[in-house]
Amino acid sequence: MRNTSVKMMRAVLVRQFGGSDQMRVENLPIPTVGDKQVLIKVHSSGVNPVDTYVRAGQYKNLPNLPYTPGKDAAGLVHSVGPSVTRFKPGDRVFSSQTTQMGTLAEYACVDEPYVFPLGSSLTFDEGAAIGIPYFTAYRALLQKGLAKKGERVLIHGASGAVGLAAIQIAKNHGLYVVGTAGTKEGIELVLETGADAAFNHRDSKYIENLLEGEKFDIIVEMLSNVNLGHDLTLMKSRGRTIVVGCRGPVTINPRDLMGTESSIIGCALFAATPDEFKELSTQVVKGITDGWVKPVIDSVYDLEKAGEAHDAVINSKGAKGKLVVRVQE
């Protein structure tokens, strides 16, 4: 006999790794909140490229099947575990954490250290666009790139969610910012977000145009399999290229590193130590309060169309901010 006392929710479930057609909305039990966990009533869930790699089974750390995708969320605290001290029911929050039952669901259980106050100045859609993009951008620029006021930074792929976050962080820390995008609309968005200059990376001569100007102390690279070889020619002495994204192998000439004693540095948010994660999350939350964290939303999808959002985030021909799934109002 069915237990009618179990409360249910709508959630996306993946029963087999593969394409976006493996994502189906099902009815599942609402998670039980743990001792040091926060149960969030999810209003919006952010979609990141890494979500598609996990769903396809092409990522280092894979969940057990079946699982619910999604790492970033924003909503209201529904309930908290006995040992939770920072939140109470009704608080507006955002979160970012990899769990077996992710954020493409009406409720998500998240460990307390990965839940953060959203405040009242941002919408839930905007809150769902903070986690991975802003945390990754901060880690790339400040923790791995060791950015300093007055330095020049090139952000390759600046019109995407991580790129736009990187512009805001860089400008807040006093850097001169040059961004690239693949469409006229993307370039306009990069400039509106605060970049000092922007180039179309689909222009066959854009590398030549970049080489005509002053070179860069830091390059934040979203598509290293395409751009890394060029990046090595664009760095100043002791420059740093921070690799945030890659979709395949690349051939480079190490001599381009030797003369300038420049560096290629990998960046992965999951590799951050607890202290590093606390630092970057604290600084981003402060940015919300100070008003410079301003997520840009490209498109919003219903829960039933989460698969379309997965396809769009990886196949876009011109990113213009963050893709969000609105789980419930």
Rank of each mutant, 00 (worst) to 15 (best):
S44P: 09
S44C: 13
S44I: 04
S45K: 15
S45V: 12
S45N: 14
S45W: 11
G46S: 13
G46Q: 12
V47K: 08
V47E: 03
N48M: 14
V50C: 11
V50I: 12
D51T: 11
D51N: 14
T52K: 10
A56W: 02
A56E: 07
G57Q: 12
G57W: 08
G57P: 13
Q58F: 09
Y59V: 01
N61S: 07
N61D: 05
N61Y: 04
L62C: 12
L62N: 12
T68M: 08
P69D: 05
P69S: 13
K71M: 12
K71A: 09
A73K: 10
A73T: 13
A73P: 13
A74S: 15
G75P: 04
G75I: 04
G75Q: 10
G75A: 01
G75T: 06
G75Y: 12
G75M: 05
L76P: 00
L76V: 01
L76W: 00
V77D: 01
V77K: 02
H78C: 01
S79M: 01
S79T: 04
V80T: 07
V80R: 09
G81R: 03
G81N: 05
S83R: 14
S83L: 10
V84F: 02
V84C: 05
R86T: 06
R86I: 05
R86V: 02
F87S: 04
K88D: 03
P89Q: 01
G90Q: 01
G90A: 01
G90D: 04
R92G: 02
V93T: 10
V93A: 06
V93M: 07
F94K: 01
F94W: 14
